Amino acid sequence: MNEPDLAALFGAAGVTGWLHATDLRSGREIGLGSDVPLPTASMFKVPLMVEFCRQADAGLLDPASRVTVGAADRVTGPTGLCAMLDDVTISLRDLGHLMITLSDNTAADVLLARVGREEINAMLDGFGLRETRVRQSCRDIYESMAEDAGHSWPYLDPEDIARLRVLDPPRANSATPRETAALFGLIWRDQAASAESCAWMRNVLNLQVWPHRLASGFPYDDVEVSGKTGTLPTLRNEAGVVEYPDGGQYAVAVFTRSLSTALNQPRADAVIGTAARMAVDHLRR
């Protein structure tokens, strides 16, 4: 498999794609546009989770401490606390669980306010992940889209898309495929935080509910797929780790941009899994 094969695969699905995959045991890699800075959408919640765990490890916050999330805290989104009507009292740790497993935007923003963007970016710098930046909260994302387009998502046309700051890497939450895969590698190697915290992060990432992207490429009972999706207009991403029963572990990050502004694009979702499987199969050979 080579870059033209991957590019043709993405093109047949109506998207432009970027990918990086790493064998976490041997260090072998394969990629397409591995070092291109791209908007991450909800995948920014992964570095947020890492910094949350590091602060808990350092005693800077208590993950079991409780906060009450009310109407003023609620952010646009279809899942979790975003969809609730009443106040919810919940621990910081369970906010982290919801923001990963359900991609709960409200949970993410409450946690982000506690952890801090500058702290996340300083942590990323410490790991040498200098193209990975957290600049926007979920509220910022939705408010900026409404400002830029003059109306709310999902009703956007191509002219609206061209104005969206959330799709412009220097102004948005962003990363490269290589750095995204590297961050997952740090979690799987117990290097992102304490061994206990990394084990918790791996478990939460394994419980993500969305099966239609990365996991769709590995429909086997004995293969574990853990990950985090990201979605914005024309943008579909997912990154995670694929684990085989022989002990093989592969960090994979796939980013896509579609020509169409349609919300439902099953081919664009499915190609993420197909491309990831092609990359992992190549590394396993």
Rank of each mutant, 00 (worst) to 15 (best):
C53L: 08
V252L: 04
N206E: 00
L111D: 05
E196M: 11
L186Q: 08
K45P: 08
A56T: 04
Q265N: 09
W210M: 06
G31M: 06
S174N: 12
A56P: 06
G248V: 01
H282I: 09
V115T: 14
Y155F: 13
H20P: 07
G126W: 12
F255D: 01
G14D: 08
V166S: 06
M99E: 04
F52N: 12
V252T: 07
A56D: 01
L24A: 09
D140A: 13
L32E: 08
R285V: 08
G217E: 01
C138I: 13
L92I: 15
V252P: 04
S65R: 11
E119I: 04
D86R: 12
L164H: 04
V280D: 04
S197W: 06
A83Q: 09
E147I: 15
N206G: 05
R54F: 14
Y250F: 13
T79A: 14
V271W: 01
G227P: 00
I90M: 03
P63L: 04
V225F: 00
A12R: 14
E131L: 07
Y244F: 15
A172M: 04
M278C: 13
G248R: 01
W18K: 07
P39L: 01
G240C: 03
M43L: 15
T256D: 07
L183V: 01
D157G: 07
L102Q: 15
A175G: 13
S144G: 04
M43I: 10
S194H: 00
S42N: 03
D190V: 13
Q136L: 15
G217A: 03
G230M: 00
A268L: 06
V225P: 00
P63Q: 02
L95C: 13
Y250S: 04
S258P: 05
D73Q: 05
R74W: 02
C82G: 15
A195D: 12
D23L: 04
R93A: 12
E118Y: 07
A270I: 09
V36T: 12
A239D: 03
L92H: 12
R25N: 13
A83F: 12
A251F: 05
A182N: 05
A12W: 06
T106N: 10
R93G: 07
A262H: 13
A172V: 03
V166P: 02
S65T: 13
R284N: 06
G77N: 05
G33R: 07
E224K: 08
G11Q: 09
L95Q: 02
V46I: 15
L38W: 02
V88N: 03
A193D: 09
D104S: 07
V166N: 00
V88D: 08
D125H: 14
R114T: 14
L112G: 06
M145R: 10
P266R: 08
G80W: 03
D35R: 15
E196N: 05
Q265S: 11
D5Q: 14
L19R: 04
H282F: 13
P4Q: 07
I100D: 02
Q249Y: 11
D269R: 10
P37S: 02
V88Q: 10
S258K: 03
T106Q: 14
S174D: 02
Y250M: 11
D23N: 09
T274Y: 10
P78S: 11
F44I: 05
R66V: 13
L92A: 10
F218P: 02
T16L: 10
